[in-house]
Nucleic acid binder design. Structure first.
Lengths: 207, 207
DNA sequence: ACAACTCGGTTATGTTTTTAACTGAGTAAC
DNA sequence: GTTACTCAGTTAAAAACATAACCGAGTTGT
């Protein structure tokens, strides 16, 4: 797995992704051509497209490591743990570690990256596509735990929307100027409430 | 001349040469294999031999930039200047700039490189071969100035031996602990004397 | 004396990359 | 409305590369 070939491939991927994000943040997505990115990463244009299928994917590669994470968490959970509990626990650990996927990371470059992704229509669209695939693969992982196709897809979709709303909530609070450590308690409480709803299904009175 | 291709080629050359010299200085020429050098430069062994014909050439590449320099100096001299005067002037400028080829550079890494070259028989032999080629090309340049084959070869050979003795003299003085600025005056005087002998041919009384 | 190993150097093969040219869509100029 | 330009994405051919295998000479250990 680790020869010179794969080592240099990974370096080229990273160089392209890093150069692209840096340029997009500095000058704006539309004011940077793929030729600029290739030049900054010191590769040719065909090589760029051998690593990434589109200009948008250059940006999403940084987040793509986390795609498939939910499915993996479910598959690798302790035998006596429910899938939802494992996902809940994993999200809480993400909050503690200020993982960017939870929306609770106030590092300036992460916030800038966030804005880049969601303020650029093409990228946001592509992100939703990838998120849909991620949700589908979580659905498969869940089907291994309880072989009910429809229910697996339902739970996967609910997890996806829960995670997205929680992250968006946290990100909005950070965008208003508060710090991650300041927001953390209410983020944890919100996660507990959301995952509790997902697990026990009991919506509060009035719903 | 300057595409991505040549840029990366030059980088690989430099990486190989630098890695080799660093390893040879740290562990000794014989205690480092070409595989070690290739690994340190992050290329494969066949690639190493595509850039350098032998293990010894890895070391001499650093000095190889200066090969052909004498011929170039002669070709590019001012029209009213004799070849020997141009070479003399160039050597004096080298002394002023503490150029490694003059032997008057007391930078520790340069001294260590010097020892590596001359204390390793294989490298020293190869250096003499390359120096011989350098002398031959100087001979051709001289022949353009005064089309006498034998005389051109004679003057080229004399220049080569003059340069070598002057450099060896300077290097020996530095090796005994003195600084380059301390040695510089006598080095300049010695160069004047040597090139004067070469130009006017008048050996002092007693020879 | 023999087997196992190391090292400098080489070769065959498939993969990756550069280069230069191209397509097709959009856009600004006139 | 036509010309000229820019950009994302593609293609073909040649250069460079990694990998794994090999050769021959020299060492070491037994």
């Amino acid at each position: 797995m680790s020869g010179l070939r794969d080592l240099k491939k990974e370096r080229t991927r990273q160089a392209l992704s890093d150069a692209a994000i840096a340029l997009f943040l500095a000058r704006g997505f539309d004011r940077v051509s793929v030729a600029d990115v290739a030049a900054a990463a010191e590769v040719s244009k065909p090589t760029l497209f051998r690593y990434f299928d589109s200009k948008e994917d250059l940006v999403l590669h940084r987040a793509a490591d986390h795609f498939g994470e939910a499915a993996r968490v479910v598959r690798d959970r302790a035998p006596d743990q429910t899938p939802i509990s494992a996902l809940h626990q994993h999200f809480q650990r993400g909050l503690d570690e200020r993982a960017p996927t939870t929306g609770l990371c106030d590092a300036p470059d992460v916030l800038a990256y966030h804005r880049l992704v969601f303020d650029t229509p093409g990228i946001a669209v592509r992100l939703r596509e990838l998120t849909a695939e991620d949700t589908a693969s979580l659905g498969e992982a869940l089907r291994a735990a309880a072989p009910d196709d429809l229910m697996s897809r339902l739970v996967a979709a609910q997890y996806a929307v829960v995670r997205e709303i929680l992250a968006r909530e946290n990100w909005a609070k950070l965008a208003s100027g508060r710090t991650a450590t300041d927001v953390h308690p209410e983020a944890a409480a919100a996660a507990d409430a959301a995952f509790g709803l997902l697990a026990r299904g009991g919506a509060p009175h009035g719903y």
